[in-house]
């Protein structure tokens, strides 16, 4: 294994591109699922809805206490059982590996988004809730029209930073042998034997995308504070 030759990276480019596409779509899907579920969990806790609020707290605490790899394993076992139960099917329903990955990352990140949004909810002055109530707004409208727009704006940069972390975390699907960007690089390295070049290329792609994204977040933060 002598001499570094980056031309092998060009030969692998289509394969890496396919991997990157999966990484990005996984990030977007997990973000959408995560932010929706996370917001609901946060509101359930904020309103102290009976049964739901403690369940949400347990869920968040558990998700934040065990390694993501462990969570991935569990979801891959349990998803067919849960989907079978939810859809009312008498038996477990097979769920494809990609779909499982989307849902797993979405639900895992939901715990983290939930904590961010909950902190934002607590920062809204009590007077606003009281004012809404005085104006006879339903809790749903209060949250949709008054509270959430402010909260999402305030915690926006933190949410985006968490999403950059999520983008990096998706590389762990490698453990389940899915072909994301890292998986593609690893499989090419096994085929062509150039692991130095392939891993360096993968690292560089992650570095460029994450750095660009964090620069954009910093810019947004400055603009919204002025």
């Amino acid at each position: 294994m002598s001499g570094i030759d980056f031309s092998v990276v060009w030969q692998a480019a289509p394969y890496l591109w396919a991997g990157l596409t999966f990484t990005l779509s996984l990030t977007v899907a997990a973000f959408l699922i995560g932010i929706s579920v996370g917001t609901l969990l946060a509101i359930a806790q904020h309103l102290q809805v009976p049964v739901l609020a403690p369940l949400a707290r347990i869920y968040v605490a558990v998700m934040r206490s065990i390694p993501l790899i462990m969570v991935l394993f569990w979801f891959f076992f349990l998803m067919p059982v849960v989907v079978g139960y939810v859809t009312g099917s008498p038996r477990p329903v097979p769920v494809g590996a990609h779909a499982t990955a989307y849902i797993t990352f979405g639900l895992f990140e939901a715990a983290y988004y939930c904590e961010i949004i909950r902190a934002g909810l607590r920062a809204v002055p009590r007077g606003q809730y009281e004012a809404c109530r005085a104006m006879s707004m339903s809790p749903f409208l209060t949250y949709r029209l008054v509270i959430l727009p402010q909260v999402l704006r305030a915690v926006g940069p933190i949410v985006l930073n968490q999403t950059i972390v999520l983008f990096q975390d998706t590389s762990l699907v490698y453990v389940l042998s899915l072909t994301d960007l890292l998986g593609a690089a690893a499989k090419m390295a096994q085929i062509n034997g150039r692991l130095v070049e392939m891993y360096l290329a993968a690292a560089l792609i992650y570095l460029v995308i994450s750095t660009l994204a964090s620069q954009i977040v910093t810019m947004l933060k400055r603009r919204s504070w002025r």
Binding site: Q168, L182, V196, A203, Y206, L207, S210
Partner: peptide, 15 residues
Amino acid sequence: RNIPLLVQLFLWYFV
């Protein structure tokens, strides 16, 4: 901060 942990691990170990 901008390279995933798992990728960094491969850099340390393989590269």
